[in-house]
Amino acid sequence: MTLDFHKNHRLLFGTVFGLFLALSGIIAVGPALWVQNNNRPLPDSRPLTDEEADGQQVYLSEGCVYCHTQQVRPIPQDTSRYGRASAPGDYARLGPRDLWRQTPSVLGTERTGPDLSAIGDRQPSDIWHHIHLYQPRAVVGASMMPSFPWLYETKAEAAPGDVVVPVPQSHGPDDGVVVAGPRARALVAYLLALKQAPLPGATSTVDPTGSTDASGEALGVRIYGARCASCHQAGGEGVPGVYPPLVDDPVVLADDPTRHVQIVLFGLSGETIQGTTYPTVMPGWAEQLSDEEVAAVVNHERRSWGHEAPTTTADDVARVRQGGPPDEQ
């Protein structure tokens, strides 16, 4: 028996086997065990509910992960759009689903569409998500995301308890109403649960606009793009019958901005605006946006699209915030 790789197949292939196994232990299994065991969920996070966990499976099986990441890198282009840099704790609750399926690989490797780590913060309206899943181009004109109509059903009329999806007429069925199926409801529950829990010791809350250095106009433009444009659209024109336009809206043009600020802070629903009753709910942004940010976005709306309405200040916003929602006054 010669100790020559060229002539001794046992030695050669035994070495390859041992070497690859050892290197795999050093570079993969060891580090994987280490990151698994030295990691715990963030204190302010919570486990997914059963419905949200089902939604995560819909997210995986429909292949959302191939176009959307769930990892915010610690570089400005990510933190300025998607939230704080992702931390190991954000993933600590992930594990194998059952005996047959492994841990969801949600981090992703491609960003054909935007990152979704904090989509539940950035776009908290379930109805928006339903419209967007049923037909993305109904609310985002330039989108090339596939539509998922098979998660929905079209009924002659909605039954009690149904989640009705107010698809704009241009993109909806000719007759009947679109109702979210159980998989759509689960998926949207999961998307709304995608929020970044604050890191222990961090002082500021999640700020997807990453706009601490910006002020005034630039800040307003960025917040409007990140928070408002998906419903009210980039040009403020809204979506007919679904999301009201801001252009020439009486509240936006009112001399006293108080009502405008109230709506941004505390949301609005069931209101008839210029003769149209909108079925959608506008979420309040009081928890996500600071006084400066609310003032910036309100002023942006009051000075854009030909508007020349009086503006507001952070101090005014603070006073409105203190006053609470109009119903409780």
Binding site: A28, L33, Q36, A92, L94, Q102
Partner: peptide
């Protein structure tokens, strides 16, 4: 060894 980010390392 594939809980949490362990899955990412292995992936």
């Amino acid at each position: 060894f594939q809980y949490g980010l362990g899955d990412t390392v292995i992936q």
